[in-house]
Amino acid sequence: MKKMLPWLITIMLSITLIVLAVFLLSDKLLGSNDKGVSAAPTHTPVLTADQIVEVSSEINQVTTNLADPDYIAKMSFSFQLNDKKAKEDFDKIKEIKIKPIIIKTLGDTKPENFKDSKVTEQFTSKLLEQINNTLPNGKVIQIEITDKIVSSL
């Protein structure tokens, strides 16, 4: 037994060192999830009510069919932009560029998607991306659905 003791200590020490090395190098071996661009929305600074009104715009009463032709949606939206100049540009093109984007996006959406708030957030994220690609200056920071009616015909 005394002859095996050094061997047992060596094996236990080796196993401990291997486990410690794997633990310390696991980020490099397995890859880190912190790399790349985050899908989370950008952090918006805290604004006063007057500042929010200065950079916000609305599109009211958008009515269109959904992906299922038996359903119709009537919605109103509120858009918060990053600055006053972006809001001015947004207001100039909202009826000729932004509203058609909303109608197309609603036309591709199934009615059951509006029953779940998580899927509704995915819808607004998709809308946010498409609208930001259209804006000449500035960007939309946040989109809120202010009124929503989804009904069958």
Rank of each mutant, 00 (worst) to 15 (best):
M4Q: 11
L13W: 11
L13T: 14
L13R: 06
F23V: 13
G31S: 00
S32N: 03
S32I: 03
N33F: 09
P41K: 02
T44P: 12
V46G: 07
D50K: 10
E54G: 14
S56Q: 05
S57H: 01
I59V: 06
V62K: 05
T63S: 15
L66N: 04
P69I: 10
A73Y: 04
A73H: 04
M75I: 07
Q80E: 14
L81A: 04
K85H: 13
K92Q: 15
K94Y: 05
K94C: 02
K94I: 03
K94G: 03
E95G: 07
I96D: 12
I98P: 00
I102N: 01
I102H: 03
I103K: 08
L106G: 03
L106A: 03
L106E: 01
G107L: 05
D108T: 12
T109A: 11
P111V: 02
E112S: 12
E112Q: 12
N113C: 11
S117A: 15
S117N: 14
S117G: 10
S117Q: 14
V119P: 05
Q130I: 05
G138F: 01
G138K: 03
K139G: 07
I141A: 13
I143D: 03
I143G: 00
K148F: 15
K148Q: 15
I149R: 08
S152H: 14
S152E: 15
